[in-house]
Amino acid sequence: MKDKDNPMLEVRDLKVSYGAIRALLGISLKVTRGEIVCVIGANGAGKSTLMKAIMGEVKRESGEILFEGKPLPPIPYEVVSLGISLVPEGRRVFANLTVYENLLMGAFPRKDRENIKSDLEWVYSLFPRLKERNNQYAGTLSGGEQQMLSIARGLMSRPKILLLDEPSLGLAPLLVKEIFKELKRINQEGVTILLVEQNAKQALNISHRGYVLQTGRIVLEGSSRELLEKEEVVRSYLGETKASREDLKDRTR
């Protein structure tokens, strides 16, 4: 258990720009084995860019990304084969493939082809609805089911760490709750999770630690419980101050 104290994934002073637009201005974060870590922030804070940089989809300007102590190659398929899997923003299921084929695609890089069957059973047990819709085209699923499929697909490569980019996007609150409950269960079954979210409350509720990302910089970090109580987090991301509630009531009246 020596590597328990060493971070599984470590980002050091990462900078990313799109042409003249600077998306990440030097951010550092760590994820330790077994944790759920969330990065919360508003639209345009750089959350998706962070995910893309880890996966090797965007060019890093400077800084380092280490996975199990070694620098990550900036090539997506190599990142995946090392044990990192991203559930992309907006679900992005293959609408032209069946649910089953989508899950097989998730298992694409695996060498141990014989274990795929038991892992299919595993993801079906996490999301029983996918089993019912096994032979349906993914494009015909509801938004919530597509999100479940996207997560299940991400798990089919048996990642050591699962990255999720805004899994709550566009889903009804009840569904969001259900999805996040499943994420907690997936974590308890041994998958480390790094989550970026706009839905700060839900994300902080299930995670161990959190970072607050604001226009390309990390402005706050701490245990999720601490962050939930911090006044500036509450004000900026939870939107639950007394004043805003009064304001909302006024406006809806």
């Binding site: 996966m55 989809e57 997506p76 398929y77 995946v80 084969s81 899997s85 991203l86 992309p88 992005r92 293959f94 609408a95 032209n96 493939l97 084929e101 989508n102 097989l104 695609m105 998730g106 694409f108 890089p109 697909r153 490569s157």
Partner: peptide, 24 residues
């Protein structure tokens, strides 16, 4: 086949096929 499936997936979304571990 496995690569055949990957081609069909990439026909829908090449970027995400890459995220699934396919050498694009």
């Amino acid at each position: 086949t496995r690569w055949g499936l990957a081609i069909r997936a990439a026909a829908y979304d090449l970027r995400v096929a890459g995220l699934m571990g396919v050498n694009v």
